[in-house]
Design a protein around this nucleic acid. Sequence first.
DNA 1: CTGAAAGCGCTTACAG
DNA 2: CTGAAAGCGCTTACAG
Lengths: 368, 368
Amino acid sequence: MDVKGGPSGAQGRRATLREVAAELGVSPATVSNAYNRPDQLSAGLRERVFEAAERLGYAGPDPLARGLRRRRAGAIGVLYEDRLSHAFADPAEVLFLRGFSVATEEAGLGLLLLSGAPGAERDPEMIRGAVVDGFVVYSMAEDDPLVGAALGRRVPAVTVDQPEIEGLPFVGIDDRSAAREAAEHLVGLGHRRFGVVSFALAPDVRSGLADRSRQGAATYGVTSSRLRGYAEALAEGGISWDDVPVYECPMSLPEVGEDATEALLAREPRPTAILALSDQLAFGVVEAAEGMGLSVPGDLSVVGFDDVPEAARATPPLTTVRQPHEEKGLRAGRALVARLREEEVSSPSLLPTRLVVRGSTAAPRSRA
Amino acid sequence: MDVKGGPSGAQGRRATLREVAAELGVSPATVSNAYNRPDQLSAGLRERVFEAAERLGYAGPDPLARGLRRRRAGAIGVLYEDRLSHAFADPAEVLFLRGFSVATEEAGLGLLLLSGAPGAERDPEMIRGAVVDGFVVYSMAEDDPLVGAALGRRVPAVTVDQPEIEGLPFVGIDDRSAAREAAEHLVGLGHRRFGVVSFALAPDVRSGLADRSRQGAATYGVTSSRLRGYAEALAEGGISWDDVPVYECPMSLPEVGEDATEALLAREPRPTAILALSDQLAFGVVEAAEGMGLSVPGDLSVVGFDDVPEAARATPPLTTVRQPHEEKGLRAGRALVARLREEEVSSPSLLPTRLVVRGSTAAPRSRA
DNA sequence: CTGAAAGCGCTTACAG
DNA sequence: CTGAAAGCGCTTACAG
């Protein structure tokens, strides 16, 4: 059976407020009041308005027209770096959205997901045309043109997990010290040979080893802060950052972490410990190591980042940095709602992190 | 530091198209054309328009005004039964959204998430006021007023995993026969005493055993179809459905499945097999059984539904019904986009399911 | 308690 | 290649 809309179908022409008014012989203002200000007309007349609306198939004021008049859209946009399908693939981001959705529901606002990559290309038109009252700018590169497009809209915005932007509230964690703690743990266990499985450093995505200059030019704030944190801890342990290979991954997915790990473990001397910028990548690290016949943590220690629920259930359970993703979403959402109401927001809002030591890390085998 | 918007802040008054036109001494139509129909003016003039816009802080045509004029919102709404935070908590729904997002991106549309429960109460106003060009109605009860509100909008809509609605494309699975297959598997293994851990039967959420009449009055299509499928398989095995306790859960979460299971396993004779309507619930079933000192599948066989990624990794790996969640989202999204374009859509679109037998089911211990 | 009027910011035939 | 005019569907002071 084929479904199409006929003239009498669900898509038949909609009635307008004006028509309802005409039907009743009252003014449009009265019909509008029936919906928006019940105290402005008698209960009886209001009832008759709704009856006429029902009869004519009028579903209430057109959202677009009402929005134009009132100057608000009734929704908040989440500006996401990548294709949305990647957001849904990462448990950490889903948790963020989960917390965020609590805030939008509290405020009675819709949650509009906006990807930077419709039709396979990044398109600022999507941002310029989004019917929203504000944006949360989530983990974008600081020079991303989509961020510029969002700011150009001159609506309230909040930044999350990315470089701070003057005048905008920020919600996130102290990525640098959280990363430092992760690396200190491995140094404390006695590791001397490291590898890093990193997120992208900049939007011109590359896959492979990132040299010092590329690291220095990183525009993703989270990535560069974490690398700096790792470097600091290793330096304190007397390990030169120049000797630490950093493999840049285009996406935070286990499969990608596997490829990175294979490259890292093929090097001489072979690393005894790998720092991954996310649990998703770390799962791939473990996978790859085992595929190469290495045991974790016997032959290789692995530390992730995020503490997604799967981390504790993994085999071995993953040592990782816990951060409160859901709380982050909730705070970002509430901060944005507050800005919409022209309330002040204290910023930055820094959430606590904590190293969770589990079974994927151990002292290196002594084999000097 | 506190952040607030000042007159010169990012929220300063926005310029309008008319002002840009005045600045340049051209008509508003020309400025509009610069953005919408580049072929309608010279490249040089177009450049000057953009320069003036930049200077005045004009970010392009206001989405609300443009939307009103063009009669389209540029977004698709997903109407979700419950609080959005529950959608994000269920891997099956996240996979659905993931597939759906691919379709909205293809079409260059935003994805607006609409919960039925803003501010803790179900509110049709949210639906009436949503700035969208169409809805996907996902797993709602057939008599839900929010569905009525969405249909009242007279925009294209698609139904998914719920009772079909005349004139609307439907995407889903054959829940009844999929459930039948799950139950047949247990009957085939020799089980005779069953329990069912079910979703809610109707929106007036109850927690506890659902008698026959409540089952008969179920308004959630998926729930009632699956129960019917189970009943059919058991009947063929000579087991009376009246002897099978059906525990109704308000939400599809492991914790809730635990409570249900404790109630079910306290009954005499104790069930040797439990059918759960989702993997999330099934995880709770296993948890509860183990908490009571029972082994799975030694003392209790458990079958889930969905085959979320966690099912294969669970201990023991979960026997369950696989359904293609992501594909379902993709198809629903594409069907809606097609309706938006007034193309025909073949309906119903039924996706394949398959019983995946893993380690959570076995023959009952003989202890007659 | 009700209505006439203005206008939210834009786009689209159409005429020149 | 450019502009004048009409209008998308509604809401909001304001006057009565």
